[in-house]
Amino acid sequence: MKYIYYPGCSLEGTAAEYSISTMAVLGALGVELVELDDWTCCGATAAEGISHLLSFALPARNIAVAEKMKLNCDILVPCSACYLNLKRVEHETRLDPSLLKKVNQVLETENLVLKGKLKTRHLLDVLASDIPVSDIASRVIKPLEGLRIAPYYGCQCLRPYAVFDDPEEPVSMEPIITALGASVYEWDMGGRCCGASLMSTAPDAGIELVAGLLETAQDADAVVTVCPMCQMNLEAYQKRASKKRQMHYDIPVLYLPQLMGLAMGLPDDQVRMDLNLCVPDAFRNKLMARQTA
């Protein structure tokens, strides 16, 4: 299995542990990743707040570069915002030839042409659909027994394009969590919004969404996410949310490949829990207490 890897800007900075653990886990599962040549920003949700055409041209540039690499494999994207932007280009330019034409006029400035031949895949799609869950289970050497994990999908890997999961009641992480030896924490917030950039542009509204999620996840041992924005919002604002609700939220928010890395016994420098902002002692102790299978 081979994919073109588009990390996106967050994975080089605030979500570094997401990229490191993604590469490590996929490597251990025998998946080959080839990083996209000279990739640039997908525009996140900022481009469409400014310019419609730019919000297509920026992700399209990356797909066009991927086509030029002539590897003829899918593009794998771990960040949900990047994923949706690339997916949107794939989807909408097929439906609207005049949009494709405009996008290609813009891409001429980079000597690129978008043909629309490649498929964009979310990391979770690849983990849940391409890799047999038995392969994941067979790599587990330190099962996460006794840990209740709340799967948190967020929005943009699920909606508006329902590609690999139910966009209202997502379940694709559950077999993976079970294969790791953990149990799935039952909650109905998996596909609820984390507030995204409202934490910066309208924090009074954003913090309510964050607090609502943390409150519902309180009895889980950890939340796992597949989106840098969700992860940052849930992890970094726990103090502020606690103050708001007069509660004490203290819950680790890990990326799915980090959780997989822990169960697969990957070395610390491939899981990089040291980069997480919130790893309570209670969680660390539970990890330490595990038996090797």
Partner: peptide, 21 residues
Amino acid sequence: RSVRFYQSFMESVRRHGRVRE
């Protein structure tokens, strides 16, 4: 507030190709 947030993001992308957080 939201407009300047988006504009600042895009400005960094325009300058460097990738956003510098």
